[in-house]
Design a protein around this nucleic acid. Structure first.
Lengths: 212, 212
DNA sequence: ATTATCTATAGATCTATAGATAATGC
DNA sequence: ATTATCTATAGATCTATAGATAATGC
């Protein structure tokens, strides 16, 4: 990661070998292809051969980049959840801002993440395989995110910015409202992220009996 | 299906043969076992051998009851969606009742369906395989249900019982709020159906700026 | 005769490993 | 020497069909 002393040419791309006259495929392109296929067909129904064909290499060549198929899904799950987690931690650390606005910001951030990008990447979260112990790191991150919704909601209530009966249940409900974007996008792939975010923000304000 | 003239004994169970001294397994028990496995492991990851073992028969014996594995999922999807569809049609046909109360009744009905029962049966809806053309009948039923949410919401607005900007988007949002129960139940298997239904009803009333 | 099962198995995969090899960078 | 690929293949499935057979109901 420390390539400060390699900044010699115009490009800062890592210098790698290029066998057979082509650029090496690299983990990223493989993960992109795997993500698309996992989302469309599911994890178990996607074969390593399909993934390799999508990036134009032979099936066993995948194993140079990943120890096994599950490692691809694991990396995808964690990398997809990472931005939300980072955002949540950042917001939680800042106690000088209106917590209701922070909660709304986190919700908008997550909605954009789920409603943007070429494929419905959030659908990875819905794969039945994600509940297997091997993906525990991802599950923990997702629970941390639910926890952040709860914490920001409790702070909002304490600040007199929101009024709900059961904060924990409401946090879970808001979270499922956000993740529901995955389902809505599956039903209608042309959903506009901004429009959906507006609608969910509006609904959130009403659910919390809040106004800005 | 016409067994009116077979009502001779105390039991009205269909008379079937019982090979090997045991009761025949029957489609229902096979479907129950398949549902549980599909929900836990996913469709593709569940083998016909696992299903047959769960009902204590050999793998090829399944093919006496079903032409193939997909037929099991197809029947499960349609049968699981059926009660909601029936309820929705019944409500839509009755134009003499307050549409807001009808919408709330449909929502409660669906929440109970998704939050009750021993296994998270609604998780079948989230399987990536459901989007394949072979399950088009199920997809159509599910869209009919979304349509019913929209119709009842528009009637509620027309009756001055609800106030929202974008009825179609709000209907989709409410629907995803209800289906979100599947995700919440996956996170916390001990969820109480009645409590969840109360919370979602409360949230719905606020989202619609309605009161009873 | 019908129902519901069984055994045996064909044929088609699928994941992952072993070992060879070509291009690259030092 | 290292990187990133390839070919060949082992070993383990997995779905579905064919054909036999035992229990049942008429």
């Amino acid at each position: 990661m420390t390539n400060a002393d390699t900044a010699s040419t115009r490009t800062d791309a890592p210098r790698r070998s290029r066998p057979h006259g082509k650029e090496p495929v690299g983990r990223e392109r493989i993960l992109d292809a795997a993500a698309r296929l996992f989302v469309e067909q599911g994890y178990a129904a996607t074969t390593t051969r399909q993934i390799s064909a999508a990036v134009d290499i032979k099936q066993p060549s995948l194993y140079y980049h990943f120890p096994n198929k599950a490692a691809m899904l694991k990396e995808l799950l964690i990398e997809t959840a990472r931005p939300s987690i980072d955002k949540a931690r950042e917001l939680l650390a800042d106690t000088s801002t209106d917590p209701l606005e922070q909660l709304l910001a986190l919700i908008r951030f997550d909605v954009h993440l789920l409603a943007s990008g070429p494929s419905n990447i959030g659908a990875l979260y819905l794969l039945p395989e994600t509940s297997e112990p091997m993906f525990g790191t991802f599950q923990a991150l997702r629970q941390e995110l639910v926890g952040a919704y709860g914490a920001l909601l409790r702070r909002s209530i304490a600040a007199g910015r929101a009024d709900v009966d059961d904060p924990a249940a409401t946090a879970a409900l808001l979270f499922s409202l956000v993740e529901g974007v995955i389902l809505r996008r599956a039903d209608d792939p042309r959903l506009d992220a901004e429009t959906v975010a507006d609608g969910i923000e509006q609904a959130t304000l009403r659910i919390l009996a809040a106004r800005r």
